[in-house]
Design a protein around this nucleic acid. Structure first.
Lengths: 333, 333
DNA sequence: CACCCTTTTCGAAACGTTTTCACCCAAAAG
DNA sequence: CTTTTGGGTGAAAACGTTTCGAAAAGGGTG
């Protein structure tokens, strides 16, 4: 449908100069007669010339574009993460292109086909051979959901294992003795680590976390709500504390419990994770682990720029969270 | 830093055929000897060939890529909107590239420089001359924050004016007699419309909405909170109902009121707008206007595809919301 | 006026594709 | 045995840039 676009040729013809002169004028190569330059800029403006980036990038060795590859953007975390990445790009003078992709193959097509300068990746489906491919091609990459390091690969992750530990310790100190864990998406690195940390501390305290008390939450309110309901239907003895893999599922858990007349925190304490905006506003407000998606996003870009400049090798940054006590937990006598 | 990439030439050399044959093999032009094709595909796979999209798009008349241009992605709305757009693209076989841009000039550069097939735009800073440029170039565009129509331009907007009307009527029916409006970003189309609808109904009921009772909320919780606090500091008589331009600011308003010992809804009713996920979970849960960002996103893509195919002229879709009564409003005697 | 710099401009190649058309060759048809 | 057909392949142009080296145009100097 679209009309034929104005190209550099049109500008050249209209201005009565050669293509290369126009190019020089537009790219600020200061070798032109000021008057010529001025004239060309005016013509370009008048014709509404917009350079074709495909043509440009075909030649260029760098595009000054960073790609953010993410499986989904729904949910309260991604907004602040993406925004932080965006702000970072702006700060360093890069453009940001965001690609949602649940399939990894068109992710690779975009990464290698678009000649972007680097990528920030949050995609749990990535396969090992794809990780290897990124490394082999020396492609500047920052992972934010797995620990990986190489010449051109960095990671910026949360210390999920330690988060699990902290929550376990916190709940033990409050006097709790029986526990359940509401897990997120399976195979998810953070989820697994968090569970491990949680379980290990309990084990050291002589408390086993039975598989029956690991409930599916899928990182979502509804899923957690239903799993919790089902759990209660089965008439298992309630734990006196529940740790949910993220705040959304903690909310679902609290809903389910409350609906069945179980009081939070008097009967069951509930802890979430992430400290999303809203949990402090709920009644009861939710005890959670504060992690900073903002920091993660900002640091990711910084690390990526390091890799792109090629001055530094890859690094792994591990961001620490901390427990924020609120009303959904209390002391057990 | 990155190594030299494998190009179609490398594949051709390695497979012992010409470039065009490789291209045909990869693009499924069925004119090749099956064995040759098979062999080429194997070689391409072995070399990890990934086509350079810049080269490809330089030639192609269509890219099967849709661009989503948005000023920010923070906040609870954008996730579901973007996700709906993404799902729509997937359904129709298009790829989605997302560009955050608060400046409109690099927005235009991306739209016209990348040879995308169409754009969905949510950007309050767009200037008239840019709208005109899009129209003049017959570029398939869907706006989701302004009403605009042309041969290649459609809009999918909410009926904000009517939303304002509905809320006013709803509050009047409950017996309220004095009102305040917490506005969003100024110059924002939806915000203005919503206020107009609200004010017009009040006026018809013989109630004037004084400028003193239009409070700044900027669509954000904190901003609304502080403005509300300031409002109360000034010791003006409280209205008995507040309509906030979105849920986030309604939350801020409720916080501020509650903190000063004003009961919601017994002393002051509060209505929000958008029905974001969380407001039904708060205490009190928030009466609001339900709009569907999901529907808006999905419809936008559908309309854009129509424009891209060139079969239909532009259209304007106006999506209706409805009031969802909850605990933050009650009857006044 | 011939010469040499300096400043300004331009031609042409290159980037990696797709696509059109011509070519080649073997098999079928005459 | 020549001609036609058509399947399979390749050469070359085109897409819109940037960039390099060469050419042209001035401007002094000797």
């Amino acid at each position: 449908m679209a009309l034929r676009k104005v190209t550099i040729k049109d500008v050249a013809r209209e201005a009565g100069v050669s293509i290369s002169t126009v190019s020089n004028a537009l790219n600020g190569v200061d070798v032109l007669h000021p008057e010529t330059k001025q004239h060309i800029l005016e013509v370009a403006e008048r014709l509404h010339y917009v350079p074709n980036l495909n043509g440009r990038n075909l030649k260029a060795k760098e595009t000054r574009v960073i790609g953010l590859f993410i499986t989904s953007i729904k949910g309260p975390y991604y907004g602040v993460l993406v925004d932080a990445v965006y702000q970072g790009c702006k700060k360093y003078g890069y453009e940001l292109n965001i690609y949602i992709s649940d399939k990894t193959d068109n992710m690779m097509a975009n990464i290698f086909g678009r000649r972007i300068d680097g990528a920030v990746i949050l995609n749990e489906h990535i396969k090992e051979k794809e990780e290897k491919f990124l490394a082999d091609n020396q492609f500047p990459t920052v992972f934010i959901d797995r620990e990986l390091k190489g010449d051109t690969i960095s990671s910026v992750v949360f210390d999920s294992y330690h988060e699990g530990e902290m929550v376990a310790k916190y709940l033990l100190e409050l006097g709790h003795t029986s526990f359940a864990y509401v897990r997120g998406v399976e195979n998810n690195f953070d989820n697994t680590q968090r569970l491990n940390g949680f379980r290990d501390v309990l084990k050291r305290a002589g408390i086993a976390l039975s598989p029956d008390y690991i409930i599916d939450g899928e990182y979502e309110t509804d899923a957690a709500y239903h799993s919790m309901k089902k759990f209660m239907d089965e008439m298992k003895p309630l734990p006196d504390a529940v740790f949910a893999a993220n705040d959304l599922s903690a909310i679902g858990v609290i809903e389910a419990l409350t609906e069945e007349g179980i009081r939070v925190p008097e009967d069951v304490s509930v802890v979430g994770c992430d400290d999303i905006e809203i949990v402090k506003l709920l009644k009861p407000s939710v005890t959670t682990v504060r992690t900073s998606f903002e920091k993660q996003g900002a640091l990711s870009v910084a690390r990526l720029i390091d890799l792109i400049k090629g001055e530094k090798k890859g690094t792994i940054d591990i961001l620490q969270g901390r427990v924020i006590p609120r009303e959904s937990t209390c002391v057990r006598e």
